[in-house]
């Protein structure tokens, strides 16, 4: 599939599906780059923000895949993630406040 999308892009005749698939692939590669901040921290807040960005990134990937594979119900899962993303930030924030702040 990757080769197909590469060929489609290079030959100047991109069909929509492979373009969207390529875009999704690039977004997943960006997710790996975002893991750098998750690893390096140095504080929990940094990591939390990085995972939050990853969550938003996931929503984008799911939306792109939804178009690329022609499966509209992928958007439902994207919506669940958009909601859960907020939830985790809230829980960690509440925990942080109750503890009187982390390092």
């Amino acid at each position: 599939m990757m080769v197909v999308s590469m060929v489609a892009v290079l030959s100047g005749l991109p069909d929509t599906e492979s373009l969207f698939l390529l875009a999704a692939g690039i977004f997943v590669l960006l997710a790996i780059v975002m893991l750098y901040r998750v690893y390096m921290g140095p504080t929990i807040q940094d990591r939390l923000l990085a995972v939050n960005v990853l969550g938003t990134n996931t929503v984008v990937v799911l939306a792109l895949l939804s178009v690329a594979l022609g499966e509209p119900w992928f958007l439902d899962i994207a919506l669940i993630y958009a909601l859960l993303n907020l939830l985790m930030a809230l829980v960690v924030t509440k925990y942080t406040v109750e503890r009187g702040g982390l390092r």
């Binding site: 690893y39 990591r47 995972v51 439902d76 993630y81």
Partner: peptide, 23 residues
């Protein structure tokens, strides 16, 4: 930190499942 990274792991797994058409 482990918990936060575990959430990121879960994000990746869910997209993998979606890709395998297991909504």
């Amino acid at each position: 930190a482990a918990i936060v990274v575990f959430a990121a792991y879960s994000l990746g797994m869910a997209v993998l499942y979606t890709l395998m058409l297991a909504p």
